[in-house]
Amino acid sequence: MRKKSAPQRTNNNGFIRIISGQFRGRKLPVNDLEGLRPTTDRVKETVFNWLMQDTRGANVLDCFAGSGGLGFECLSRFAAHATFIELNKKAAEQLKNNANTLKLDNTKVINKSAIEHLTSDNQGDKFDLIFVDPPFRKGLAEPSCHLLEQNNWLADEALIYVEVEKECTFDAPENWHVLKEKQAGQVLCRLYQRN
């Protein structure tokens, strides 16, 4: 009788890999938590090909940070600062640990609901590059995007990356226009620019 081998950990439940920049190839641990759905390397490569000229010096907001894969990728590519919003306490702690591992002092982790945080009127810096990649099938993408627009979170020509399930009906704010769009499996990816 063959002995069953232990399940292999994959990059979706054990670590994320930074694909380019100063931390290229670094693997950062990720907690295996329900609902945590790190962006795949394939999708990440597409997104950062779209954003190739836009990460350096950007003030980044990762709204449903989870593993932090998108925000850390920006920091690897010389973003000025990244703010991670993550509701799950363990995931938020891991984001802080990973920032410390990379010796980053230009990050902020906010452990609360993105919707709750974005509901308040932003009195601080505006964000140039925003990631909205919420848990699927919870109806969080559209309200998050409208709160970003309504409550002064966005720089004038901000770029907003939205990742939703392909069957999601999603209405962006009227002054956002689609720059890029791609479907990868069950995922629909869009990059918007604010006018």
Rank of each mutant, 00 (worst) to 15 (best):
residue 18 I to T: 04
residue 100 N to H: 11
residue 18 I to N: 00
residue 167 E to H: 12
residue 194 R to T: 07
residue 2 R to P: 14
residue 105 D to L: 12
residue 165 E to F: 11
residue 40 T to C: 02
residue 186 Q to G: 00
residue 53 Q to F: 10
residue 87 L to R: 15
residue 22 Q to V: 14
residue 21 G to T: 15
residue 63 C to Q: 03
residue 85 I to P: 08
residue 78 F to S: 07
residue 31 N to L: 10
residue 15 F to C: 05
residue 89 K to C: 01
residue 164 V to F: 04
residue 104 L to W: 08
residue 54 D to Y: 15
residue 88 N to W: 07
residue 18 I to G: 02
residue 143 P to A: 02
residue 72 F to P: 05
residue 193 Q to C: 11
residue 30 V to S: 01
residue 111 N to H: 10
residue 63 C to K: 01
residue 189 C to G: 15
residue 121 D to T: 13
residue 49 N to A: 02
residue 54 D to E: 15
residue 46 T to C: 02
residue 73 E to T: 07
residue 76 S to N: 13
residue 29 P to N: 01
residue 34 E to K: 14
residue 59 N to R: 08
residue 179 L to M: 13
residue 103 K to C: 11
residue 15 F to P: 03
residue 125 D to T: 12
residue 13 N to A: 06
residue 74 C to I: 12
residue 56 R to A: 15
residue 128 D to T: 09
residue 190 R to C: 12
residue 102 L to F: 06
residue 169 T to W: 02
residue 38 P to D: 04
residue 47 V to H: 03
residue 155 A to W: 00
residue 133 D to N: 15
residue 10 T to V: 06
residue 72 F to K: 00
residue 110 I to M: 14
residue 111 N to C: 15
residue 117 H to Y: 15
residue 137 R to H: 15
residue 158 A to M: 08
residue 22 Q to N: 09
residue 177 H to F: 13
residue 5 S to R: 15
residue 131 F to K: 06
residue 96 K to C: 13
